[in-house]
Simulated assay, not measured.
Amino acid sequence: MTIYKSEAGAQLLRERYLETLRAWPVPHEEVRVPTPEGETFVLVSGPAEAPPLVLLHGSGSNSGEWTARLPSLAGRFRVYAVDVIGEPGMSAETRPPLTGDRYARWLDAVLDHFGVARAAFLTSSFGGWLALDFATRRPGRVTALALRCPIGLGPMKKGFVVKAVLLALFGEKGRRKSVAGVLGEPETSPIVDHQLLVSANYRYRTGPFPLFDESALGRLTMPVYAVAGAEDAMVDSATTKRRLEAAGAVVDLVPGTGHYIPGEADLAFLTRTAANGDFTA
Rank of each mutant, 00 (worst) to 15 (best):
Q11D: 09
Q11T: 11
L13D: 06
R14F: 07
E15T: 13
R22V: 02
W24Q: 10
P25S: 06
P25I: 01
H28I: 02
P36H: 09
S45G: 10
G46T: 07
E49N: 12
L55G: 04
S59P: 14
L70I: 12
P71M: 03
R76W: 02
R78G: 02
V79T: 12
A81Y: 01
A81N: 04
I85C: 07
S91D: 03
A92F: 13
A104R: 09
L107N: 02
V110I: 05
V116S: 08
A117V: 10
R118I: 01
S125Y: 02
F126C: 04
G128W: 00
G140C: 03
V142G: 10
C149N: 15
I151D: 06
I151R: 08
K158M: 10
F160A: 13
F160S: 14
E172I: 00
V182F: 06
V182K: 03
E185T: 00
H194W: 12
L196V: 00
L197R: 06
S199D: 01
N201Q: 11
P208N: 05
E214L: 07
A216T: 08
L217Y: 05
R219W: 09
P223R: 12
P223K: 11
A226R: 06
V227Q: 13
D236G: 12
T239C: 09
R242S: 08
A246I: 02
D252C: 09
D252I: 08
V254S: 09
V254Y: 12
G263R: 10
E264R: 14
D266G: 10
T273E: 03
A275S: 09
N276Q: 15
D278E: 15
A281Q: 11
